[in-house]
Structures are given as structure tokens and as C-alpha cells.
């Protein structure tokens, strides 16, 4: 499966639209710069959320006194854990690259990523 298919699959599950109707302005001489900056900002968001998650995890483990030294370093994901992790990575990738959807949404054909009931 290519990255593009992964993104489309992730969005096919989506019930709510993720791009706003109306032309998306670009701010830099080259619109590619706008897209890159949008991705960088999304990465900031994701990194911050991940750090919060790690912080929560460490604090809970510390509070419950369940983490043995070196246990995290030695851990290898397998089976369902590995699948969940892979799905999360795919969703993460789709989120960071979602700015590209705006370009598709602006094209004349309606975006297939959601069903408009009314």
C-alpha cells in the first residue's frame, strides 16, 4: 500500500469534513512554502501531544511504582500492539499531510472524503 492509499483510507472513515469551503489564501511567493509551513505547524502540535502523553505515562508509572529500570528500552511491540502502533503512525502521517486535501477540495469535483447528507 502506498502512502497515498493510506491517507485516503484514513479519510474514508471520516464522517466530518476537514477543509473549509472557500479559497485558501497563500501567503508566500511559492504556494509550496505555505504547505510546508502548515505541515511543520502540525508536527509541532503532534510532538507536543506526544510529549504530553509520555509525561502522563511516566507520572502514572512513577505513582504506581510499576516501571522497572530498563523495561521501556527493552520493550519490542508484537502482534496487536504492533498493529495498533502502525495504525497510529498511518493516522499521524495523514494528519500532518492533511493540508494537501485543501488543494483537492478546491478542485471543481467535490472531495470524496465525506458524505454530505443534506
Amino acid at each position: 500500500m502506498t502512502d497515498r492509499t493510506d491517507t485516503a483510507t484514513a479519510d474514508a472513515r471520516t464522517g466530518l469534513p476537514r477543509t473549509a469551503k472557500g479559497r485558501r489564501p497563500h501567503y508566500f511567493a511559492d504556494p509550496a512554502t505555505d504547505r510546508l509551513l502548515a505541515m511543520v505547524v502540525t508536527l509541532m502540535e503532534e510532538l507536543s501531544a506526544t510529549r504530553d502523553r509520555v509525561d502522563s505515562l511516566e507520572r502514572v508509572l512513577e505513582r504506581e511504582r510499576v516501571l522497572a529500570e530498563g523495561a521501556v528500552e527493552a520493550f519490542r511491540p508484537e502482534g496487536e500492539t504492533a498493529e495498533v502502533r502502525e495504525a497510529r503512525r498511518a493516522a499521524f502521517t495523514a494528519r500532518v499531510l492533511r493540508v494537501l486535501d485543501a488543494e483537492i477540495a478546491e478542485s471543481p469535483q467535490e472531495s470524496p472524503s465525506f458524505t454530505h447528507v443534506k
Binding site: 473549509a20 501567503y27 509551513l37 502548515a38 505547524v41 502540525t42 493540508v99
Partner: peptide
């Protein structure tokens, strides 16, 4: 240009994460 692009992105991400 940078401020505008970042401000715009903050608005888009707000809706995206709430969605």
C-alpha cells in the same frame, strides 16, 4: 507573510482536532 500563514494554520488545526 509568516504571521498570516501561522495564524491561518492555527485556525485550521483548531477545527481539525475538535472534529
Amino acid at each position: 507573510q509568516f504571521w498570516s500563514a501561522l495564524q491561518r494554520r492555527s485556525q485550521e488545526l483548531m477545527w481539525d482536532t475538535l472534529a
